[in-house]
């Protein structure tokens, strides 16, 4: 049994309950025990780094310190890509001695370092591993064509995220392949969906989403799978906006990677939250 600290972040307690439940259930089924960080606080995205660099670093470092010093764990699962990005950025900022001294003063104790930050893809790819995952599949997808969407913050910038191929990542493709699905090659997998502007620049966001999903469909995808609650909500809900501009728009389901893993390894459907989507996913997940 592996034990990871767990930082759900605000979205998983709000707009993405199906990510929280499908992630928890699939992790448990794969013998990964998740221990939620007690009293976790905001990671600072998106506001803190646009307001104060010290605050932006201190917020995630405060959480990393709790993981190592209080929980005595060496790794933390952070399924929200925006939170993951802040955790990695915080750890990266600690390489600067002046910043580190300031952050330690703000947090109120020494930064111990030595915590591996795992995003949703990493948990399945690195912590569980493809071989183990493959042996756990009891209900494979049969030839479902999916476009794996990474968006911005899982891979960029690579100096911070430590992603090995930031322009054309393929770990998610390897995972869905292990589940029996067929990943498509496509051009928009790391293009930004504009989620940070979702509440305030709707025309921009609808156009960004339209471009991404148009390419996914053109490349043969029957569904898009993603690993970020902000991307999922944006790609899912904004299709209604695309429809108001283009009545002929054919909707495409937007899945969480954890839902696909969960379904393939036999997690009970009640934990997958398939009814929580705006665009129906029940058909492709049947």
């Amino acid at each position: 049994m592996k034990q990871l600290a767990y930082y759900p972040g605000c979205s998983l307690h709000g707009t993405a309950p199906e990510l929280d439940s499908s992630f928890r259930a699939s992790a448990a089924a794969l013998d990964v025990e998740l221990a939620e960080i007690p009293g976790w606080e905001c990671c600072g995205n998106t506001a803190a780094h646009s307001a104060d660099r010290l605050l932006a670093a201190a917020l995630p470092v405060n959480e990393l310190t709790k993981v190592k010093t209080d929980m005595r764990l060496d790794a933390v699962a952070v399924p929200c890509a925006a939170c993951f990005s802040r955790f990695m950025a915080g750890a990266h900022e600690m390489q600067d001695e002046g910043m580190r001294a300031d952050v330690e003063r703000v947090v109120g104790r020494a930064y111990p370092g030595g915590v591996t930050v795992r995003n949703l893809v990493d948990v399945y790819y690195d912590e569980v591993g493809l071989d183990e995952l493959t042996t756990r599949v009891t209900r494979p997808f049969v030839g479902l064509k999916v476009a794996a969407y990474y968006g911005c913050l899982l891979t960029r910038p690579p100096e911070v995220t430590l992603a090995d191929d930031p322009e054309y990542p393929t770990h998610m493709e390897a995972i869905v392949k292990a589940l029996g699905a067929v990943p498509v090659e496509w051009s928009y997998k790391t293009d930004c969906c504009g989620a940070s502007l979702a509440l305030c620049e709707q025309d921009v966001v609808i156009e960004l989403v339209r471009k991404i999903l148009t390419n996914a469909k053109a490349c043969g995808a029957e569904a898009v799978v993603c690993a970020c609650p902000l991307c999922q909500v944006n790609l899912d809900t904004r299709q209604a906006g695309i429809k108001t501009k283009d009545a002929a728009w054919q909707e495409i389901p937007i899945l969480y990677l954890s839902q696909m893993v969960g379904r393939a390894i036999g997690v009970p459907e009640g934990k997958l939250g398939l009814k929580k989507h705006m665009v129906d996913v029940v058909g492709v997940m049947a």
Binding site: C10, H13, G14, T15, A16, P17, P38, G39, W40, E41, C42, L55, A58, L59, N62, V106, V107, G108, V233, K275, K276, H277, M278
Partner: peptide, 20 residues
């Protein structure tokens, strides 16, 4: 669809205040 939580979930506000 239960995707909007009407109530706040609360973090360690004492530490947040201290840090700010």
């Amino acid at each position: 669809k239960g995707k909007i939580n009407p109530l706040p979930t609360v973090g360690d506000r004492t530490q947040m205040k201290r840090m700010l």
